[in-house]
Structures are given as C-alpha cells and as structure tokens.
C-alpha cells in the first residue's frame, strides 16, 4: 500500500530477531502518528511461518526466494528495492545489526531516496518525520527531517522495547514474488560456530560482572543464576580472577579484555580505572555497591546503593517473573 510504513522483519536461523520487535514497536508509533498502515516485509526462503509473530503490523509482505535462504545483504536489498519501486512506502525501517547493517544504505542508494542512519528515535512532527541520530560514539545527537518523500531509516538496537512490538494477532500475509539474479555475486557458504570452551565475554550482549564485594566464591552462584536468566555470562574484576573465583578469560579491564555489551551489571566492583578502561563503552551500565562514593557510580548509568548479595537474587526473581 502506497504511503505506509514498512519494517524489515529481520530473522536469523529460524527466529525473528529482537530488533524486529523493536522496529515494529517504533513503526507502530510512526504509522499511527501519520495515520497510515504498518507493514512488515519478510524476506526468506521457507520462512513464511515467521509471519505469525509480526501481528503488530497491519499486514505482512512475504517474499520467498532461494537466494534469500541466508541473509545476504545484496539479495535482501535487491528484493526490497523491487518492492519499494512497486509500492512506494512512506518509510522503511531497517535494523542496524550485524545481520542487516548495510541493507538500508544499499536500498536507499538504489532507489535514490534519503536515508538516516543511527536513529535512536523517530517521531512524527507536523506530518513529517524527524529522527534523532546518534553520532560520534554518542557525543553528539543530530535531529534530521525526512520530508514527505520516501526514506530509509537505519534504527539502532534498543530504540524501543521489544516487548511493545509483540502481538498475538496473526496478521494477513500477502505473498509477493521478486526476481533475483540466478548467479549472485555474493554466495553464502557456511556458518562457523564459535569454538567450544569457555565463553568469550567480548561476544556477550549481557555481562554480570562481579568484584570483591561479592565476598566469596560461593556467592558467585547468585551472579551465575542472574546471567543465565538474562542470557549472558559472568565476568569479573582482577582480584576475583586472582583469587581463582573465575578463569582468566573472564577478566575485564586493562590486563584483561575490553567488553562492549548491551548491559554490564557491576556487582561489588569499586570502579578502579584499570577496570573501567575495559567496560566504559558498555551501552548500559548498572552498578550495585554499598559505598556511595564508589567511583563505579561515576561511569554507571544507574546505581543501586545496596548489598549485591540481596539485589542479585531479587533481580533474578524479577526477571524470571517478567519472562514468565
């Protein structure tokens, strides 16, 4: 439908990604603000079933093609370009993830429409779209306007809560065909699974970090449990590693590794410069400490002045409750 808002329904290995729900939540707001429909675009091969999860959209455009079996940006972009040219949506929301990073830019270039990248928020203002884009590692935010033309919006993970993008409604699905080149220039070969062995904390989205404030190795179980319900891993400050509570591969900081997770929950860590060096770039830092003057509170976004041994189990419970 011309003039509607589209969301690229990203999926990988048989599952819709979190970003898809986040984009649906945002897309819903924009579509409602403009008074137009929200459509999800599902590109894949044998993945049509996933449309069930896209109920937040008014309808789903489903493309099935053997070249879309695995996410090859060029193929996704080519398919999207054809759809956009045919149907002229008002705006297309594309997630900025490892999977889809270049798709938005490729599409906007091919269809010759403007793109706004790194959006952390998009709003309807006077019937037009305005986006807030995060530049320079978060040091600057730019507000850009998209006019009434078709535009492509690259959306940062976390722009909206994924929660708000889920729905039990099963949306109507419209199968669409596209023609893609027979001999693609980029061909998927195979996946390389991470090596077994200890978890690589640099690759985790969620880290529960423990320091000496955890009092003893026995209490690490509290952190392990929380990490498990959050789907992350446990890491620690150097003294914790020195005392053998955790293996060296879990050390964060100057003499350990630098991490950049979406959530870094620091429990009983004072925030020494050597430690902060390794975690300051985390997207969200929450610190639990009993000392109000602990330097960790200067880098954390949220602080809790409390005993970590009480907060961690409470949080584990709460998260469990929330997940149901």
């Amino acid at each position: 439908m011309s003039g509607s808002i589209w969301v690229l329904a990203e999926h990988w290995r048989g599952q819709l990604s979190e970003s898809t729900y986040e984009l649906l939540a945002l897309g819903r707001e924009i579509a409602d603000g403009l008074g137009v429909e929200l459509q999800a675009v599902l590109l894949g091969h044998g993945a049509a079933d996933l449309a069930k999860g896209l109920g937040k959209a008014n309808s789903v455009l489903s493309v099935d093609h053997s070249s879309l079996c695995e996410p090859v940006p060029e193929a996704c972009a080519a398919a999207l370009v054809q759809l956009i040219k045919e149907r002229r949506p008002r705006s297309v929301l594309v997630p900025l993830t490892n999977i889809s990073m270049g798709v938005g830019t490729l599409v906007s270039t091919a269809v010759k429409v403007p793109a706004a990248n790194f959006c952390r928020d998009v709003r309807v203002v006077d019937g037009g779209l305005q986006a807030t884009c995060v530049l320079y590692g978060g040091k600057i935010e730019a507000t850009v306007t998209m006019g009434a033309e078709c535009s492509i919006l690259g959306i940062w993970p976390g722009a909206r809560a994924a929660e708000n993008g889920r729905s039990d409604v099963v949306p109507p699905v419209e199968p669409v065909t596209v023609s893609l080149p027979e001999a693609p220039r980029v061909r998927f070969k195979r996946y390389i699974e991470p090596e077994a062995g200890d978890v690589d904390i640099t690759q985790q989205d969620t880290l529960v970090a423990v320091g000496r404030g955890m009092q003893g190795q026995a209490n690490l179980a509290l952190a392990e449990e929380l990490a498990e319900v959050l789907g992350g891993a446990v890491c620690g400050s150097r003294p914790v590693i020195d005392q053998g509570w955790l293996p060296l591969s879990r050390q964060v900081g100057k003499s350990g590794v630098s991490v950049k997770p979406k959530l870094y929950l620091a429990a009983g860590i004072s925030g020494a410069p050597e430690h902060v060096e390794g975690m300051k770039n985390a997207a969200l830092i929450i610190a639990v400490n009993t000392d109000p003057r602990a330097p960790i509170f200067n880098v954390a976004h949220y602080g809790i002045l409390a005993d970590a041994l009480e907060v961690l189990p409470a949080l584990t419970e709460a998260v469990r409750g929330k997940k149901g």
Binding site: S19, A161, A314, L315, A318, V319
Partner: peptide, 24 residues
C-alpha cells in the same frame, strides 16, 4: 549514575523496566 532507591524487590522491578525499555 541515576540512583535507584527502594528495597531489593522494588529495585529489581525498576531494573527490569529499564532493561525492557532498552531492549535487553
């Protein structure tokens, strides 16, 4: 940091909201 106050259960609830809002 923005400090979250309350007993452990309350604080945990607040964290959950933040995590949900941030998509974690």
């Amino acid at each position: 940091a923005e400090m979250l106050a309350g007993d452990p259960a309350q604080v945990a609830g607040k964290i959950c909201e933040i995590l949900a809002a941030r998509g974690v």
